[in-house]
């Protein structure tokens, strides 16, 4: 329990530091709005996100009005409600995917870097291999080939596509995080306090988790925010190409893809989801810049 309180306190401290930077001051509130909408958006939405408004003829492709703030789409659905409900799956999936990749990447990067030698060499070659593939292409391949097949376990079926996306994002995130954390570990392990721990007879696991891990946290914080923004970009791109998160949850990418048909006479259909994606990613990137400034790391973005 004490450990949990400590973790909460550390996170609170970190957030306070980020809030002190100009980027953090703008970015955190934007993110907060998105996260609130993601949790309670579907209940706040004035209309159902999926049901067609009746009668269809009178309600389809209506421009923004007091009744429909952002207008309606080709099926007469309220765009505001759809945008509000779209955040839930997108954020849940991208956060889990990024978290999975960061956790595995950090673990692999730290142990491989600390171990060194031939194992490290092999691990890093595998990571290079994984990285020599554009993330979006890998995600496309996985979704196209596995997305419409039945899940290996019946219980996963209802979320199968989302699980696939989470795993794919994890796989594309992992090598990039591993590479960064490994290089941090390589420089940390030559430092005297790590050598001291070895001289005390501490085991590798102790050294990795108690001596090295705490010192990688600022870098991990930056990585987490950068990777999250890439996850969101990749997932919404998948949605745009029609291979995104599972229906019936509205998908901002897909909404934008479909809006192209009426771009000439109903531009509002495109505006709302575009704004939603843009503000979400801008928010994440602002926070990411804030974390970088607050942690005193060089401004250089990570690749």
């Amino acid at each position: 329990m004490g450990a949990l309180a400590l973790v909460v306190q550390r996170i609170a401290n970190a957030l306070r530091l980020v809030l002190r930077t100009p980027s953090g001051r703008i970015g955190l509130p934007i993110l907060l709005v998105h996260f609130i909408l993601a949790t309670i958006g579907p209940w706040l939405a004035p209309y159902s996100a999926t049901e067609f408004q009746q009668p269809l003829v009178e309600t389809q492709l209506q421009p923004p009005s007091w009744e429909f703030l952002f207008g309606t789409d080709q099926f007469g659905r309220d765009i505001l409600s759809r945008v509000m409900s779209g955040a839930t799956t997108l954020i849940a999936v991208s956060v889990s995917g990024a978290a999975l990749g960061i956790a595995l990447g950090a673990a692999i990067g730290m142990s491989s870097g600390y171990r060194g030698g031939r194992i490290d060499e092999i691990v890093m070659r595998v990571m290079d291999g994984l990285m020599s593939f554009p993330s979006l292409l890998l995600a496309l391949l996985v979704m196209a080939m596995l997305g419409n097949r039945p899940a290996p376990i019946e219980a996963l079926q209802s979320n199968w596509q989302n699980i696939l996306i989470v795993i794919t994002i994890g796989v594309v995130t992992l090598p990039r995080v591993a590479r960064v954390i490994r290089s941090v570990t390589l420089s940390l392990k030559t430092l005297e306090f790590v050598q001291s721990a070895r001289l005390r007879g501490e085991g590798s696991a102790y050294i990795i988790f108690r001596e090295i891990l705490p010192n990688t946290l600022p870098v991990l914080g930056v990585e987490a925010s950068v990777r999250l923004s890439y996850a969101i970009l990749t997932i919404s791109s998948l949605g745009f190409l029609g291979l995104g998160v599972q229906p019936p949850s509205p998908d901002w990418g897909l909404m934008l893809a479909q809006s192209r048909q009426f771009l000439g006479h109903a531009p509002w259909v495109a505006m709302a989801p575009a704004g939603a994606i843009a503000s979400l990613v801008v928010g994440v990137n602002l926070v990411s810049d804030g974390v970088k400034q607050a942690s005193g790391l060089p401004q250089e973005a990570t690749t």
Partner: peptide, 18 residues
Amino acid sequence: GLVGISLPEFVTGVMLML
């Protein structure tokens, strides 16, 4: 720059088209 890295290609593309 910040806005640029935040906008996915399909958003920029559709906006340009619009």
